Computed example of a mutant assay.
Amino acid sequence: MDYKFEVAVIPVSDIDRAIHFYKALGWRFDAEFADDEGYRLVQFTPPGSPASIIFGSGVTDAEPGSTEGLHLIVEDVVAAREDLVGRGVEVSEVFHDKTGVFHHAGTTARVAGTDPQRTSYGSYASFSDPDGNGWVLQEVTTRLPGRV
């Protein structure tokens, strides 16, 4: 049985502001649906991604800005960071974790710069949407076995 991750729901306080932000990132605007009872759903997909995000009113009870650790996999974290900065996004400096494994929560154990060996899965940068939902760019150049 395959279980394919399709969508993440993120909580936002201002739907139109979120639409503007994700459009400015260059993400594909997939859908918008609203009804007369205040339900509104918006869907975006990052370039090259099979998974999307959904936000709106009536789609989650989570507090706006409470989602953390949404990972965007990129081939070159430095270039991806520069692209986002060029789009007006405030992005952290590139970092790696002191353990050389997965990054710690928040800014704990961050070491400035790319992973010294530039190992796959080892370099990051982070940013947030206008509500504070946290995104992480993670550089992956060679996938682990079994990954596509």
Rank of each mutant, 00 (worst) to 15 (best):
R81Q: 12
T142Y: 10
G65H: 03
H96K: 11
K98D: 08
R87G: 06
A105H: 12
P46D: 06
D16V: 06
H104V: 09
E32T: 02
V101L: 14
G100T: 05
V74H: 00
L70E: 03
G113Y: 09
G88I: 03
P130M: 06
G69E: 10
A125C: 14
D2P: 09
V89S: 09
D16Y: 13
G106N: 07
F127A: 11
G26L: 06
A125D: 03
S123M: 06
V12Y: 00
T108L: 15
W135I: 01
A24Y: 04
V94L: 05
G26W: 07
L144M: 13
F29R: 13
Y22Q: 02
G56Q: 00
E90M: 07
F5E: 03
F102M: 14
I53L: 01
G132C: 09
D97V: 04
A24D: 02
A62T: 09
D36V: 14
Q117I: 09
D61T: 09
D36L: 13
V91W: 06
Q117A: 15
T45Y: 01
A8L: 14
H71I: 10
D14A: 07
S123L: 12
S128T: 15
Y121W: 07
I54Q: 15
Q138W: 07
E63K: 15
F55G: 02
Y3S: 15
L70F: 05
V111K: 13
A18R: 00
T107A: 15
V140H: 03
I54F: 07
V111Q: 12
K23F: 12
T119S: 13
T107W: 10
L41D: 07
R110D: 06
R147N: 12
V140W: 02
P11F: 02
G65T: 02
E75R: 10
D83L: 13
G26F: 10
D2A: 14
V101M: 15
Y121N: 08
T45I: 04
V136D: 14
G56C: 00
G69R: 05
W27M: 09
D83W: 04
A109T: 07
